[in-house]
């Protein structure tokens, strides 16, 4: 299968260094403390944050910081073939752990001792890059819930197919058998919170793919920032903060 045409276009018409169309919606659920929908092309993820609240299981209480609990699940209708997907299978458990690890580093937990933050992530449509989209949605939801964060962390995937480094792989490219690198980056601190790769890659190529993924993270973080700022401004105006000052 040809992933990059001689004209330099990918299967869905993108250039190798192009992201899919991003759309962020904030506070979509009224019952959650913070919630967000993050869309990237045909991938669509919903995240809901409940908390910080008192820990539900006393044995898990941490004196020095907040406990982050994460649950990742895929909707039965999220893929082409309808399939009952639980939250307990191997893939979901692994992804829950990956997201939780990333969020634990992003949240300033020491400001919220003896409390717990629940993050529920559900994939509504899956078309590759669900891991990164889930992180992005969760970070947006945390920011909307007013949880202190070290930085606006963003995740992005990159791969290497047909001798070209490709940004933000979709499902067809993901299943193309090439290496798939998933990165979460804190842009201001310039520190990596997550690096995951399946398959092998020569070191020099890895550098190029890594740089591409980081570049993608920075761009996505910028888009997320714009969405959050607009949302903040809207809330402030409705509340009469700008008029009062």
């Amino acid at each position: 299968m040809e992933f990059v045409s001689p004209e330099g276009l990918r299967l869905d018409g993108r250039r190798p260094r192009e992201l899919r169309r991003i759309n962020c919606q904030l506070d979509v659920l009224s019952n959650a403390d913070g919630s967000a929908i993050f869309e990237m092309g045909n991938t669509k993820v919903l995240a809901a944050v409940f908390g910080p609240h008192a820990v539900t299981r006393r044995s898990e209480l941490r004196e020095e910081g907040a406990l982050v609990v994460c649950e990742y699940s895929m909707a039965a209708f999220s893929t082409g073939e309808r399939r009952r997907r639980g939250k307990g299978d191997r893939r979901s458990t692994e992804l829950s752990m990956v997201i939780r690890n990333t969020l634990e580093q992003a949240v300033i937990t020491e400001l919220l001792p003896r409390s717990q933050i629940d993050v529920y992530v559900q994939v509504l449509q899956a078309d590759g890059g669900t891991r990164c989209a889930a992180i992005n949605a969760a970070v947006l939801a945390l920011a909307a819930a007013g949880v202190p964060l070290r930085d606006l962390v963003a995740g992005c995937a990159a791969g290497y197919l047909d001798g070209t480094a490709l940004l933000d792989l979709n499902y067809t490219e993901d299943s193309g058998g090439g290496p798939d690198l998933c990165v979460a980056l804190a842009p201001r601190l310039d520190s990596l919170y997550l690096v995951q790769m399946d398959n092998r890659l020569p070191v020099d190529t890895f550098q190029a793919v890594m740089e591409l993924a980081r570049e993608g993270c920075r761009t996505i973080s910028g888009v997320m920032r714009a969405a959050l700022l607009e949302h903040t401004q809207r809330l402030a105006v409705a509340r009469g903060i700008t008029a009062a000052v």
Binding site: D151, L152, Q233, R234, A236, V237, I241, T242, A243
Partner: peptide, 16 residues
């Protein structure tokens, strides 16, 4: 409420 025409004497910030 004209959100976009609102007086900009307040500074909004986002995480980071």
């Amino acid at each position: 409420l004209n959100v976009h025409d609102a007086p900009s004497n307040t500074t909004f910030v986002c995480v980071g």
